[in-house]
C-alpha cells in the first residue's frame, strides 16, 4: 500500500480540465483547493504505482508542478518495484 499527499499546481487556464481528470481517477481524493494549488491524496497498491500516478499527474496539460507533502509506503513492498 502507498499513500501520498501531493500538491498539484495548475495554470489558471487549466484548472477545470485538470480537476476533471483528477476526479475521474478513483485512486485520487481531492482536498480543499488554495487558488491554483490543489491538495490531493493518492492511494495505490505500492511505490511503483504511486510513481506512475505521480508521473501521469505531471504529464496532464495544465499542470505546472506536482509537489510532495507526505508519502507513506507500507514495509516490504518497496522492492516490488524493480
Amino acid at each position: 500500500m502507498a499513500i501520498s499527499g501531493l500538491v498539484v499546481t495548475m495554470d489558471d487556464a487549466g484548472v477545470a480540465s485538470v480537476l476533471a481528470a483528477l476526479r475521474a481517477d478513483p485512486r485520487i481524493t481531492l482536498g480543499p483547493p488554495a487558488g491554483v494549488r490543489q491538495p490531493v491524496v493518492i492511494e495505490t497498491a505500492g511505490p511503483a504505482e504511486d510513481d506512475a500516478v505521480w508521473a501521469w499527474l505531471r504529464s496532464i496539460p495544465g499542470v505546472r508542478f506536482v509537489d510532495v507533502a507526505y508519502v507513506h509506503f507500507d514495509q516490504g513492498e518497496e522492492h516490488d518495484h524493480g
Binding site: S4, P47, W54, D67, V68, Y70, V71, E78, H81, G82
Partner: peptide, 16 residues
C-alpha cells in the same frame, strides 16, 4: 546491477 529509486518524501529537491 539494480535500479535507483528516489524517495520523493526525503529528496531535498522534491521538498523545495
Amino acid at each position: 546491477m539494480g535500479t535507483a529509486w528516489v524517495d520523493r518524501s526525503n529528496c531535498l529537491a522534491h521538498r523545495g
